[in-house]
Design a protein around this nucleic acid. Structure first.
Length: 550
RNA sequence: GGCAGGGUAGCUCAGCUGGUCAGAGCGCACGACUCAUAAUCGUGAGGUCGGGAGUUCAAGUCUCCCCCCUGCUACCA
């Protein structure tokens, strides 16, 4: 019975290039998961898009004296390029600038308003009289009232680490213009999170399968008590508030960004020519929806978005939010998009084959703790694990079939116990590896799959077909045929992580159709199949040269 | 400051509800093999599980205190 799986991935901000941390934190795990589910024969919808609103984009645009759209148009195509080259298999990767997204966002807004989960409230906010805009706390600098640090930000002092309120700062100044901010009254809509607190608690308490950090963090937030949250801003770049008298205000970026999952699903359905196709993914309660995000985004996906969905009514809440920790870069330096440090995905993909990057990143996915990206480790993983254990396995077997059996998969007679044992192991692997993938334990899944490759290597060493072929050709035939069957199993087991090279292997094995249509399960290579000439799946990387991948 | 996660072999990381939990892979040393991208297979060395105190017959595993890293702390998203 096929299941329906909705894979939602955090929306990248459209004013930076994508770095390794984002790829490993959200997009790669989401893609591995989606590919696995498709192999299982499940119906998968995987959506995301560029988050195009928000203060940083308008600030960047102002700095260059251009429309924010120019910034978006510069980065969105680069993001798409990463998906293409890295093999992130979105069903739709859109933006928050589409008319559809605006319409869906406003619909959610109005429905929440109608259901009394939104209400307007007057308050005072910091205003930059020179730049003529209201300032988020982060855009105010000044002297810390506690330690006297002169570069303190409005939300926190980087020197003494205290949390601040922007109005506490001594000598406050706007980060944008340098002007002294003033307080100005403004009326904004607030999301009545407080009213949904108990329902959220009840809902979260059932989520035993959530990761420890996600569950505890969310429970902690709920137990502290939820405060209503302002969801509109005095800005012109964003989705307009669809209420009379509020024409000069926009819906705040995080509110519209999470709605993107829904609007993208609807857009996907429209593009496909089946406008209602989104509904089963959102309205059928048997659908499992997953949200792949970084740990900094947990509250938006385990509290705010669920609250919005509850307030809206009739739509599925997240089934799981397998949030990841961070991938750090070199000596504990964070992969920060704002600081401009880190390894950009496009640079990395210029240097290395996508599957090599995917393989290495999968071994260091920050599933439970922050991890570290190191280029020399990537090279080592390629040479000493990917090629040594897996690439070389298929290479040595295919080579021997060419040398001794004219490249045709030989017949295997009655199987020796060790041959049957290896095949049994391959069949079992679909359960064990599959269970890990399904539980979003991608590192463990990869490790488990590689164990089968090691067993196959051991099997070859014990049966020594290169020796057997001289006295007992049937013995060698059996060994190679069985080894090919296991390689074919590994091709499927590894496909979610290594989509490019396993597709190549599928063709090299002379098999029809594609890997996905073969499905998640053991399939022997038909005897008599003609193999393609030997063609290495991966290329060794010279340690001394800077990235020479194929 | 508060909340959450993490601190385990040279490196990257597993270790759920306390008793083969002191592990895996890589690296390193030695041996075997030579089909294969000097790949593979076997053997071995390596850690008082961040520090201290406690509970227990028994603690990386529970409790308390301390140190370090990361995130959040509601106007970055």
């Amino acid at each position: 019975m096929p299941e329906r799986i909705l894979v939602c991935v955090g929306w990248p901000y459209a004013n930076y290039l994508l770095h390794v941390g984002q790829a490993a934190g959200a997009y790669l795990p989401a893609d591995i998961f989606a590919r696995f589910q498709r192999l299982k024969g499940n119906e998968v919808l995987m959506v995301s898009g560029s988050d195009c609103h928000g203060t940083p984009i308008t600030v960047a645009a102002d700095k260059e004296g251009v429309d924010p759209r120019v910034i978006v148009d510069r980065y969105h195509p680069r993001i798409l390029e990463v998906w293409e080259r890295f093999g992130i298999s979105f069903d739709l990767f859109t933006t928050t600038l589409t008319p559809n997204h605006y319409a869906v966002t406003q619909d959610v807004f109005l429905k929440l308003l109608e259901n009394d989960f939104l209400y307007p409230k007057m308050a005072e906010y910091l205003y930059d009289p020179e730049a003529e805009r209201f300032l988020p706390d982060r855009y105010v600098e000044g002297t810390c009232p506690h330690c006297g640090y002169t570069e303190a930000r409005g939300d926190q002092c980087d020197n003494c680490g205290r949390t601040l309120d922007a109005v506490e700062l001594v000598n406050p100044r706007s980060k944008i213009s340098g002007a002294t901010p003033v307080l100005r009254p403004s009326e904004h809509f607030f999301l009545r999170l407080s009213a949904l607190e108990s329902r959220l608690k009840e809902w979260v308490s059932e989520k035993r399968h959530w990761r420890k950090n996600v569950l505890n963090f969310t429970l902690g937030m709920l137990n502290e008590g939820l405060k209503d949250r302002g969801i509109t801003r005095d800005i012109k770049w964003g989705v307009p508030v669809p209420v009379e008298g509020y024409e000069d205000k926009c819906i705040y970026v995080w509110f519209d960004a999470v709605i993107g999952y829904l609007s993208a699903s609807k857009e996907w359905a429209q593009i496909r020519g089946t406008p209602d196709a989104w509904k089963p993914f959102w309205e059928d309660s048997s659908t499992r929806s997953y949200y792949f995000v970084g740990k900094d985004n947990i509250p938006f996906h385990t509290v705010v978005w669920p609250a919005m969905l509850m307030g809206y009514g009739g739509l599925n809440l997240p089934y799981d939010v397998p949030a990841n920790q961070y991938v750090n870069f070199s000596a504990g330096q964070k992969q920060s998009k704002s600081k401009g440090t880190g390894t950009w995905m496009l640079d990395l993909l210029d240097a290395y084959a996508p599957d090599v990057v995917r393989f290495y990143l999968t071994t260091v996915l920050p599933e439970t703790t922050d991890t570290e990206f190191r280029e020399e480790e990537l090279i080592r993983a390629n040479n000493d694990v990917l090629i040594a254990t897996w690439g070389n396995l298929s290479n040595r077997v295919i080579s021997m079939v060419h040398r001794n059996f004219e490249g045709v998969v030989p017949e295997s007679g009655p199987l020796a116990p060790e041959s049957q044992a290896l095949l049994d192991e391959a069949m079992t692997a679909f359960d064990s590896v599959g269970a890990e993938f399904d539980a979003c334990h991608f590192r463990a899944a990869l490790q488990e799959a590689l164990r089968l490759a090691q067993s196959a290597n051991k099997y070859l060493d014990e049966r020594a077909p290169w020796k057997a072929v001289k006295q007992d050709k049937d013995h060698a035939a059996e060994t190679l045929a069985v080894a090919l069957d296991v390689i074919n199993a590994l091709k499927v087991l590894l496909h979610p992580v290594l989509p490019f090279s396993t597709v190549q292997l599928h063709g090299d094995l002379g098999l029809p159709d594609d890997v996905v249509s073969q499905g998640w399960g053991f399939q022997p290579v038909p005897r008599g199949t003609v193999l393609a000439p030997v063609q290495p799946l991966y290329t060794k990387i010279d340690v001394t040269s800077e990235g020479a991948g194929a």
